[in-house]
Design a protein around this nucleic acid. Sequence first.
DNA 1: TCTTGCATAATTGTATACATTTAATGCAAT
DNA 2: ATTGCATTAAATGTATACAATTATGCAAGA
Lengths: 233, 233
Amino acid sequence: MNGEYDFNREVSDKYSLRGRVFHKIRNDILNGRYKEHEELKEIRIGKELGVSRTPVREALRQLELEGLVQIIPNRGAFVTGIQENDVRDIYAIRALLEGLCARWATERITAEQLEAMEENVYLAEFHAGKGHMEQMAELDNQFHHILYDACGSKMLEHQLIDYHSYVMRIRRKTLSTIERSTASNKEHRAIMEAIRAGKADLAERLASEHMKNAYENMVKNRLYDIYKKDMED
Amino acid sequence: MNGEYDFNREVSDKYSLRGRVFHKIRNDILNGRYKEHEELKEIRIGKELGVSRTPVREALRQLELEGLVQIIPNRGAFVTGIQENDVRDIYAIRALLEGLCARWATERITAEQLEAMEENVYLAEFHAGKGHMEQMAELDNQFHHILYDACGSKMLEHQLIDYHSYVMRIRRKTLSTIERSTASNKEHRAIMEAIRAGKADLAERLASEHMKNAYENMVKNRLYDIYKKDMED
DNA sequence: TCTTGCATAATTGTATACATTTAATGCAAT
DNA sequence: ATTGCATTAAATGTATACAATTATGCAAGA
């Protein structure tokens, strides 16, 4: 009888056809199956997944939302090209927003979230000692998502997740040196301890610098160029 | 023979059916024709515009991109609700990003863009003297778009335009006091002069404070609440 | 050899039909 | 009057057919 609905709840949408198609294409882009500027043809993808063009079209239009796909009218959908300038800009933006996120997290984090963060840091240090690069990358992603969740702002969280997935294609490669991973762990621990101690200014500064360091490391190692060349085969 | 295409060019898409539907619904939301949480039914909109459901569906999915519409699987598309928390968060985010934008604009603005900005400031002061509120609002929008364009970053520009349209529904109301408009003009002039003088730090600080002032003014006047009540009729 | 033009094929854009899911309705039982 | 359930209606999800647009191939001519 009542028209109530919780508009704030998260909708997974993983079980509709469009949802499945969406996640499939998304993963394929993030994992590097598709090259930059590669055309994503509706018929081919539909045939591959055993669905018609309709859900594929809609999935592509939703992927444009995340910036992973660009749609040109009457031409088609293309994997977004990663310009070096864009990467630089995104890291600059993230440096500010992750800082803000850490500040708000300091003020609003719950006991459970803090515990999850602590567990993440410990686990990451464990795997760093063993040289488990795969787990490290996953834990790094997880750390940031915990942080996003803890800031208590749907707007900011959504924004940061978008950027995060946008650069994940690159980050997968850049994090894969044991030196940077170890340094990154230390920075995560510092951020976590600042949040736990309630030092908002410090947490903000540390999270911001964490981004800048990640970017500088990437540039220093020129891994982005290697990735780009790798994609052009 | 060549598969060349400038992926950086802007696509207007105003001449396809989906494009027309998109802009129609978007304007209706921004102008307050639809209430918050109002359901946007595909058939009704299609009938109103004389098109089938398909372009309407795709337009709605693109509007989700701008955050103006929320789609719930198997339920429908709804006008996004503006939570007070969201407004607060967006202004906090914009305070940082407009600052960054002003900083980059200081370093990269062209002579033409600077001239456009100067003209805008002069015009705004003229209309403020005459009490032309309608033109003031338009010029305010224009000032920020010039600034976004001048920062030389497609990523940042796109981001700021998104937020800008998201809060435009509210801003239309909040700017409509002559006191705030006059103060806003002064702030615009100060930002413009800092950019012209090449003072990046100052420009960043001023642009950031400009946002904080706009938000505080809004809260002070409780115009947001008035707007909300207005929408519930 | 290079360009131009046209015919053809391939692809996206839109409309429509059908399937599935959700909401609304009505009515009987309590 | 209210609850519960079955039925009906209505809306979205998906598939498919057709229209419009764009890409491709090839032949004719400079």
